[in-house]
Design a protein around this nucleic acid. Structure first.
Lengths: 210, 210
DNA sequence: TGCTTATCTGATCGTTGTCAAGATTGGCTT
DNA sequence: AAGCCAATCTTGACAACGATCAGATAAGCA
């Protein structure tokens, strides 16, 4: 109800308002809310007028795009961090999946913004492919035995893994799964069970044509 | 811009406005738009004042719930219809998955509403479990060889399949996958490739503990 | 010094979800 | 059949939203 930033006297020109807006947006997304962030609220949080953001972003969705980019970066960092201590072997793909889902669970609003942006653009940011989470998955697939020269096979497998991880990420919160989680001994075990089943195809790639 | 329903003289009391509102909502969701349906627009489409819906739904989200329910029913019908002509055997699970994704592709706005409602309630409607799509998946899993008495195993497998289907449904539209689709000979083949890989665990349930 | 340009404000428009108060009417009671 | 009740629908209003515009401000450069 009260303004979150109470008029600490700021020079008329902000310096780097664009950056400040993105950080204000992140702050609001992290503070639970519901991912339906309001551009006016972001401006308020940054201590600036409702029209100011329009000098740095064409419209609201462009601010969300910027937030999404930061999110993809943060996700990739976290996946790399979670992957680092694991041994080379079959399960690194599952470890990546768990890191992915964990991020979406710990930052639900940000994840929603990230995915909605990708959906609106009908593509994932290309940075994602080259150095982000997509690349990590692809490398893990090669490590697990897929033919590095089979471009389409790799692409298909990466896509499958990504779809599975996204599906799990969006559904794992359903309360209806609580008994199952309890039975398996917690959410992490639940995730491992789901993801290891869904990535079984990496070990058994050939399949009778249907 | 013009009112969609031009004042065909209607008695002051509508008769079954609740039904009319749901159908108006469906009409708007089917007409592309973007799933961000406006309650005022629904009232407009039904030829009624903006406040009228509040006598039949507590708020906007309750109208969306009703639309979601209809959607789950329609999805189950379509999955049953698509499943009917298939032979008993391994691929019925994939057929169900393809039907699921096809529905989400042909009714993107409705599907979004369906899933958002489930997410807000943190559970899927119980009708879904007992006679809807969930039940169809479960039956197909039993048919494919899973132990019908292993309650938790079935639940886990159904959950995995559902997650995979949802993930595919939300990502298959990405333009970035176009080369892959073309290489495989179309979207249906693409879906089959993804879903058959992701459901491989039905044939190979046991797995070295990780 | 004065001019140019980028940045920020204030006011405003059309739209949204929601609510309170009043109009209208079908159905029940007598 | 007369009268009332409760359900239904409308009107009008409110605050908040995204977006736009003219104008104020200040920084950088001539």
């Amino acid at each position: 109800m009260k303004p979150a930033r109470v008029a600490e006297p700021r020079p008329y020109h902000h310096g780097d308002l664009r950056r400040a807006l993105v950080e204000a947006g992140r702050r609001l997304l992290e503070a639970e809310s519901g991912s339906d962030i309001s551009l006016r609220a972001v401006a308020r949080e940054a201590g600036v007028s409702p029209a100011a953001p329009y000098h740095h972003f064409r419209d609201k969705s462009e601010l969300l795009d910027a937030l999404a980019m930061e999110g993809w970066d943060q996700l990739a960092d976290q996946m790399r961090a979670d992957l680092a201590p694991t041994e080379p072997g079959q399960d690194r793909l599952v470890a990546l999946g768990i890191a992915y889902v964990r991020f979406s669970r710990e930052n639900p609003a940000i994840y929603r913004v990230m995915f909605d942006c990708s959906q609106n653009h009908e593509a994932m940011p290309s940075k994602l492919r080259e150095e982000g989470a997509y690349r990590l998955v692809r490398d893990a697939l090669i490590e697990s035995g897929l033919d590095p020269s089979d471009e389409m096979g790799l692409e298909l497998a990466s896509t499958a893994v990504w779809c599975a991880a996204h599906g799990v990420a969006e559904m794992v919160g359903f309360r209806e799964f609580s008994p199952l989680k309890a039975h398996l001994g917690g959410e992490e075990a639940f995730l491992r069970a789901l993801l290891s089943r869904l990535t079984l195809f990496t070990a058994e790639r050939e399949r009778p044509a249907g």
